[in-house]
């Protein structure tokens, strides 16, 4: 016969054991999901990989086609979006960290920026549609670049803000005491100290938009031909994947998987580089 205390102890140990095993199972679930999704993308995408992917433009079903115009288009659109959002984001982040830190308006803008950071991307697409596309009566690469830039912007604002605040105050004081004006302190001392951190933010922004599809549906749409005019739709990978994956044609679906593989590899590569940069930045500050 066991005493009450012993039975209680046994019960507590069983509860503990079950809970810890379940927590391990949760972690395994997450890893399985990651492995499953990556495996699906790699195995289905690799089957359609080949040089024709990069050399031929998209073609009607049944004809041999590639994704060349979509790949070039996606790179153009994403880099343009990063190009306009980065300087603006760095300036806004500078204001938050250097001029409005610990102020009410700084807190307000930081709050709004964080909301924008997590806001549904589809909403930003609709916003640009009503603002630009409807008045111009034309879907265009320009509108797509605007919409995607608004996704990069809050990422850059936030990282710039955080990275500048991580720069030790002594650095500012040392520079100011030499008689350097504040704008020069910011642009020539602080930016240099925070450079790798800010670059991380820009890369994270790029990783976020390179697979982004929803905003493009309302702004840029897609183009099955080559186009280099910013006032016309430009072909791009996410929209092509979306259209091809929904199509009933086997060869189009295969191309969709190949495109999916390209985007996934690109996104994971960029995030890993961003992570390594961040690690380096942390070490240099420690």
């Amino acid at each position: 016969m066991s005493t009450v205390a012993e039975r209680l102890y046994l019960r507590r140990r069983i509860v503990n054991g079950v809970a810890l095993v379940l927590s391990g199972a949760a972690a395994v679930f997450g890893l399985i999901m990651l492995g499953w999704i990556l495996w699906t993308t790699i195995s289905k995408g690799a089957a359609a990989l080949g040089p024709q992917l990069f050399t031929t433009a998209t073609a009607p079903p049944g004809e041999p086609g590639g994704l060349a115009n979509a790949i070039v288009g996606t790179l153009t659109i994403c880099l343009s979006a990063v190009a306009w959002a980065t300087p603006l984001g760095i300036l806004a982040g500078t204001y938050l960290a250097e001029y409005a830190n610990y102020t009410k308006r700084g807190e307000l803008i930081r709050f709004v920026n964080d909301i924008l950071l997590s806001a549904p991307s589809i909403v930003l697409g609709l916003f640009i549609y009503t603002l630009i596309v409807r008045p111009m009566e034309q879907f265009s690469m320009f509108a797509g670049v605007l919409a995607l830039g608004f996704i990069v912007l809050p990422v850059v604002v936030r990282t710039t803000d955080e990275m500048l605040r991580m720069v030790p105050t002594q650095m500012r004081e040392a520079a100011l005491s030499l008689g350097v004006p504040q704008w020069k302190v910011t642009t020539q001392v602080l930016y240099r100290a925070a450079l790798s951190g800010i670059t991380t933010g820009v890369l994270l922004g790029l990783a976020r938009i390179s697979g982004e599809t929803a905003p493009l549906i309302f702004t840029n749409t897609n183009n099955q031909y080559w186009n280099f005019s910013p006032l016309q739709p430009m072909s791009n990978l996410p929209m092509t994947i979306y259209e091809y994956a929904k199509s009933p044609f086997e060869d189009w679906q295969q191309l969709a998987w190949a495109g999916a593989l390209l985007i996934t590899v690109f996104v994971l590569l960029v995030s890993v580089i961003a992570r390594l940069l961040l690690l380096k930045n942390k070490q240099s500050h420690d």
Partner: peptide, 24 residues
């Protein structure tokens, strides 16, 4: 390593989730 792997899930574009969802 596990924390990094789980966070990689967040980086996968949502359209890939959609295709995996539909086809697998």
């Amino acid at each position: 390593p596990i924390a990094t792997a789980i966070e990689l899930l967040a980086g996968i574009p949502s359209i890939i989730y959609g295709m995996w969802g539909l086809f697998v």
